[in-house]
Each structure stands twice: as structure tokens, then as C-alpha cells.
Design a binder for these strands. Structure first.
Lengths: 209, 209
DNA sequence: ACAGATACGCTACGGGTCGTAGCGTAAGGA
DNA sequence: TCCTTACGCTACGACCCGTAGCGTATCTGT
């Protein structure tokens, strides 16, 4: 979402076009697919969306913020189906996340905006709220299910529980991203199975299944 | 290294200045620190290095290749001291890698070039040879030591061993990068300890130490 | 010593993108 | 209806890109 959206005290005057918002974000994703992050320009997005370039700058500060918003909605597709076991749930979320990274839009944009965010605190916060939170939600959900099944112990200390959840999230998301984008090798069912085994059983046990 | 360096059949004419190479790479790192990836320009690097802009283009195709070479040498500092146990070795390599990601040059450049490499096969290969290989070396070295100590079983099938090493590498490097750059929280000794415990013992055992 | 070959510094250039200003027009709200 | 804001359009200076052209510098082979 652009910079407006919430907590608007009902200003007077002509309201912003919601159709333009949708067209711009759609055009941004299309431009990412065709041109990739580095060759995407504000002018190209504007012409694809059938909108003046100035309209883009009225809503987004620049390319970084625009692309974050354009890609964020794709992470809403992530869901964690209840497959009955922690192992199956982890494998499912890994494969879903991998499928998202297969798409050329996310593939070219995700690491780029993260790189930009290393020098832009506000952008980092935007990424956290729009993208990271949507992923972390699945980890929390999966842990809750596993605890209800008795597969994981219930941690009484809330802070310790939060730290562990953060750790697990970094391990899962980091491993998938690194496999897909750095090693540039497929995250298929076999890899997801071996990764899940390693995550749940550890290095010592995982070497001899 | 620039595009020349190896397998040179002793051409005639004036040779390229090795001092210029060093000055350019040093200037590139300095520019990364001051300006960051996105605002770094070839002209700025050239003037910092006291070199004509055309000299840069004679050696590197563009910003991507230049920055990869400039950052790659920093990964040579990575070493795996033998601390006597797999746990200690893993923690040490995690903290070393984290220290590298603390530096503003690598922080801003690493994810950026990875993002660019998603649309540039040649660049991906350059990153693999210059950066990823230097990291993966440590994983192979650590496993060999652990096997010698009897902490890890020796896998007879070479291909299975290679696949497992790749998996572990993606988990370690991915988790550290994700923690440092995406979650943007410190990779300190405590995190390294908890991560190593998770990696070695698995999720079930790690939750109740 | 001389000639050939290549690197270097410098200048200049067309092409592209950026982000903004200014203006007239369109579309809601009081 | 009046007020306010959004929109499309044009134009603009600033910056960076990547290359061409030229004279000079440095090394190799004869």
C-alpha cells in the first residue's frame, strides 16, 4: 500500500484513484518480469500503467518503496495447510516459499530491496512489515500446531520462545533463499525433505537415515 | 581479478598496471563504504583511484563485475581455526562470517550482486568462483575435521556427501545472512551458540537445554 | 636502436534516467 | 456552487552511462 491508506481523516478534494494504485502495482510486477530490478525505471512503469510519471511520485518516494509494495502482495498467497505432522508442515512451507522465489518478479526484486535496505532504515521497516511479517506468521503458526500435537514442548518463557522462533525463521528462510538465489539450484521435494530432516533431527542424526 | 590474469600467452605491448588494479579495487571498496552500492558510480571510483574512467572499462564490463572482484578478496580472510570440537568450529565460522557482514562494504554489496546475478548467468559464475567457493571451503574443512574426530560419520558415497555438504552450507550461510541483513539483528556469540545447537541437535532437542 | 603493439589519460559526446516545476483540467467534499 | 486535491502533460537541469578519438607512455621482438 502507498503512503496513504490508513488513518486518513477524510480529507476534502479529489480522492486518489484506487484503480491507478492497482494498475501501477501490476505494471511494476510486469516490468520486473520483463526488465528485472536494475533496468526497471519509473517511466516504464508509468507508461505500462497508463499513468503519468508524476502520479507515481505522488504515492511512492521512489523505486525501492514501489517495488516492495508491488511484491508484498505475492507473499499473501503463502498458507500453511495442516498436513498432520511438523515434518510435513515444514516441507510444505519450504516448497511454497521456494515456489515464490521461482517467480521472476520476486527472484529479481527480493534481494535487491534487501540490499538497498542496508542503507535505508525506513525501507528496512517497510520490508519487515510488508514481507517478513507475512513469512514469519507461518513459523509461529506451525509451532503452535506442533505444540498442540505434542511434537514440540511448550516454552513457558515468552521471550525465550520468541527468540527461538526468530532463530528458526532465519534458518528456514535463509536456507531456502540461499539455495535458490546464491547456490542457484532447485529447491525441490528432495531438498525440502533433506532440509527438514536436518532441521528436526540435527546434523548428527541426519547423516544416517 | 580482472578478465586477464591467467593463461596469458605473453602478449607484446605495454602491460597493464598492477598498481592500477590494486588502486581501483581499493577505491571501489572505499566508494562502497561512503556511497553504498546504488550510489556508487564508475566515475567516482575512477577519480578516487586516480585513474581514467576508460581504464576501468578496459578491465571490467561494468559495476557488477568490478564490485564482485573488489569484495571477493575480503573473503580470503576467512579461516577455520581448529578449536577441538565441531560445535566450537561451527560457532567460530558463524562469527567470522558475521564479522564480514558487519563491514559496510560487504553489507551493501553482497545482496546487491546476488540480486543482479539472478538475470546474469556469467555474473553468477563469477560470484560462485570468487565468493561462494571461498566460504564453502570452510564447510568442507570443518566436516573433514569432525570426521577425523569421530564427531561425524564418514559418508562412503561421494555424491551423497557432496549433497549434504551443499545443504549444510546453504543452511549456515543462509541463516547468518538472513539474520544479519533481513532480520537486521546482531549475530552475536549467544545467537551463534543457539544456532549451532539447533544445527547439531535439531529442533526437538534444542528447545530444552 | 628501431618499429610494432598495447595501455593510459584526457576530452567530448549522444543517450538515457532522475526528480521536480508549472500549468490546465478532472473529480470529489462542504 | 466553491474549495480542495488528484491527474495528465510538458519541459527542464542534473547526473550517469558507455564509447570514440587522439596523443602519449611503456614494453616486446628484431
Amino acid at each position: 500500500m502507498p503512503s496513504h491508506s490508513l488513518t486518513e481523516p477524510a480529507r476534502s478534494g479529489r480522492p486518489r484513484s484506487a484503480a491507478a494504485d492497482a494498475a501501477i502495482l501490476e505494471a511494476t510486477r510486469a516490468s520486473l518480469v520483463d526488465l528485472g530490478w536494475s533496468k526497471l525505471t519509473m517511466g516504464d512503469v508509468a507508461s505500462r500503467a497508463g499513468v503519468a510519471k508524476t502520479t507515481l511520485y505522488r504515492r511512492w518516494a521512489g523505486k525501492n518503496e514501489l517495488v516492495v509494495d508491488a511484491v508484498a502482495v505475492l507473499f499473501d498467497e503463502l498458507e500453511l495447510p495442516d498436513l498432520g505432522s511438523l515434518t510435513a508442515d515444514v516441507q510444505a512451507v519450504v516448497l511454497q516459499f521456494a515456489a515464490l522465489l521461482e517467480r521472476p518478479e520476486t527472484r529479481t526484486a527480493l534481494m535487491a530491496v534487501v540490499a538497498e535496505s542496508t542503507r535505508d532504515e525506513a525501507l528496512r521497516g517497510r520490508i519487515r512489515n510488508s514481507i517478513v511479517a507475512r513469512q514469519k506468521r507461518l513459523v509461529l503458526q506451525g509451532r503452535e500446531r506442533a505444540q498442540r500435537r505434542g511434537e514440540l514442548p511448550v516454552e513457558p518463557d515468552a521471550e525465550v520462545a520468541a527468540r527461538t522462533a526468530d532463530l528458526i525463521f532465519d534458518v528456514i528462510a535463509g536456507a531456502v533463499v540461499h539455495r535458490a538465489l546464491v547456490s542457484a539450484e532447485p529447491v525441490d521435494a528432495d531438498w525440502a525433505r533433506r532440509f527438514t530432516l536436518l532441521l528436526l533431527k540435527g546434523l548428527g542424526s541426519a547423516a544416517s537415515p
